[in-house]
Amino acid sequence: MQFNSLDAFLNARPPEFTKGPSAMIFAEDEVEIDSTLRHHHKAGFKSVILLAPPSFRIARDVQPWTTRVDYDLNRGDRIEEAVTRAANIAVGAWLYYCYNAEYLLHPFCEHRTVGEMLTFHGEERRDAMLTYVVDLYAGDLDQAPNAVALDDAWLDKSGYYALARKDPGNHGYPKERQLDFYGGLKWRFEEHVPPDRRRIDRISLFRARQGLRMNPDFTFNDEEYNTYACKWHNNLTATVCSFRAAKALKRNPGSTYEIDTFRWHNSAPFDWTSSQLLKLGLMEPGQWF
């Protein structure tokens, strides 16, 4: 199914999307679109939506279960507008969003679907889930000049930290159960990354409702959605494993010639398992057994 605009898609209110859980994949370029779609379909999302320019091609095997929406982030369309408007037509459904060449992994995802996880999360009276965007990068930039290599992916095994999220409306005091998280390539190469784009936390999974609005910094207008856990105990978190920062650093003329490799002494091969991310502390199982 294909829609020639976001308006057309929202007006159609596809039943599988409004029921959820649904994944919205925003394509900035044509790198690994197909693998991104396949990964999230396999994860258990009932509806997978590709928001991309009509010129971007996808493989035949993903076409039957992918809904296409013409949407061009490179020509002024904004991800926060699409997510906000989608949340207002899929009330009660769980939604997820990411960019191409980004892959959601959650605790025990090898054996449990994203739908099972979200059912459990909702039973804990949570309507949103914190995700950490963990940077992936190719181990050999000579073989992968765009820094993307699924079969030779690496990640940082340390160097992550959190700072209190200050509330400008309350004299700069820290917000309750909210933190700003940093690390990965945006930390190691921060001189090439604007300060407002260095955080690695997103609320990538959330329950849609009327009046919910996503902000440009990946937070929501409901402060409870932005918390990492409830007041009673730790909750589940998940990880978005992303080549996006590596791609940008190699594409940017101001940084590409200064980077011969992304690997350093704290790099490790990524094995594409949730157990590796759990051991590194890059996701939290909470009460999810």
Rank of each mutant, 00 (worst) to 15 (best):
Y257G: 09
S204C: 15
R263F: 01
L179E: 11
L282G: 00
F181G: 06
G211N: 02
F220H: 09
E223F: 05
H265E: 15
I200Y: 06
T273K: 08
H265T: 12
D201C: 11
D217W: 07
R213E: 06
K231L: 10
I259C: 12
L277P: 06
R209T: 02
W187D: 15
V193K: 03
F220A: 09
R209Y: 00
I200F: 08
E258M: 09
D271S: 13
Q210D: 06
P269A: 15
V193N: 01
S204M: 12
W187E: 15
E223P: 13
W272N: 06
F220K: 04
I203W: 05
G183R: 10
L212T: 04
T227F: 05
R263L: 15
N235P: 02
C241F: 10
L185T: 07
W264M: 08
K250Q: 15
W272A: 10
A238P: 00
F270E: 00
T239H: 06
E284S: 13
T227G: 00
M283D: 00
N221I: 02
F220I: 05
R209K: 13
K247H: 11
D196T: 01
F270L: 09
N266H: 14
K250P: 02
L205M: 12
G281E: 04
I259S: 11
A248I: 10
L278G: 05
C241G: 07
M214I: 06
A208R: 05
R188T: 04
H265C: 11
E258F: 11
R188Q: 08
A268V: 15
L280G: 01
N226Q: 02
L249G: 02
V240A: 09
F181L: 14
N221F: 02
A268M: 14
S242K: 10
V240H: 02
T273C: 07
E190V: 09
R209A: 02
L277H: 03
I203F: 10
M283Q: 04
T261M: 09
R199N: 13
A246I: 08
G211Q: 04
R198M: 09
K250N: 03
T237N: 03
A246Q: 10
I200Q: 08
N252C: 09
R177N: 13
V193P: 04
F189I: 05
P269F: 04
K250Y: 01
E284M: 14
D222R: 08
Y257T: 10
S204Y: 02
P253S: 12
N226G: 05
I203R: 15
W264P: 04
K250W: 03
E284I: 11
R177E: 01
